[in-house]
Simulated assay, not measured.
Amino acid sequence: MSPHDPYEFDDDPNRLDLDAVWRFLSTEAYWGRWREFDDFRRQVRHAWRVVGCYDPHGDTVGFARTFSDGVAMAYLADVYIESAHRGRGLGRGLVHEMIDNGPGKNFKWMLHTDDAHGLYRDFGFAEPNARYLERQPSYHSGSGSV
Rank of each mutant, 00 (worst) to 15 (best):
L90K: 08
D12S: 10
G102F: 06
G124R: 06
P128V: 09
E82F: 00
V21P: 11
E28K: 15
H112T: 03
V50W: 00
P137W: 14
D78G: 06
V21I: 10
H46P: 00
R65P: 01
W48A: 10
E36Q: 15
H57F: 02
H112F: 14
C53K: 09
Q136M: 07
A72H: 15
R41C: 11
E82T: 03
H46L: 10
S83I: 11
D10H: 10
I99M: 09
D115Q: 13
N129W: 01
V79E: 12
Y54M: 12
G70Y: 13
F63N: 03
D59E: 04
A126L: 12
R23Q: 08
M110A: 09
R92E: 00
F24E: 06
W109D: 02
R33S: 04
N101R: 14
P56E: 08
V44Q: 14
I81K: 08
W31H: 15
G91D: 01
S138P: 04
E36G: 06
M1F: 05
Y132N: 07
Y75R: 08
N14Y: 02
P3C: 07
M1W: 04
D55N: 09
D11S: 08
P3Q: 12
G91N: 06
G62H: 05
D100R: 15
G62M: 01
Y80Q: 02
H117V: 08
A84G: 06
P13H: 00
F125R: 11
V44T: 02
G118K: 11
G118T: 10
Y132G: 08
G144V: 03
P103I: 00
S68A: 08
A29Y: 04
H4A: 06
F37Q: 15
D100W: 11
G91P: 10
S143K: 10
V79Y: 11
D11T: 03
A126H: 07
F125P: 02
A74F: 09
L90G: 00
Y30R: 14
F107I: 01
G70I: 01
R23C: 03
S143Y: 03
G70R: 10
G70V: 04
H112E: 12
R86S: 07
V71R: 14
M110T: 08
P137K: 12
V95K: 14
R23S: 05
R65S: 00
E97T: 11
Q43V: 00
D122E: 14
R65W: 07
T27Q: 15
L18N: 11
P3T: 06
A64R: 10
H85C: 08
R35Q: 13
D39P: 03
S26I: 02
Y75S: 07
Y139S: 06
H112R: 07
T60R: 13
P13D: 03
T27N: 13
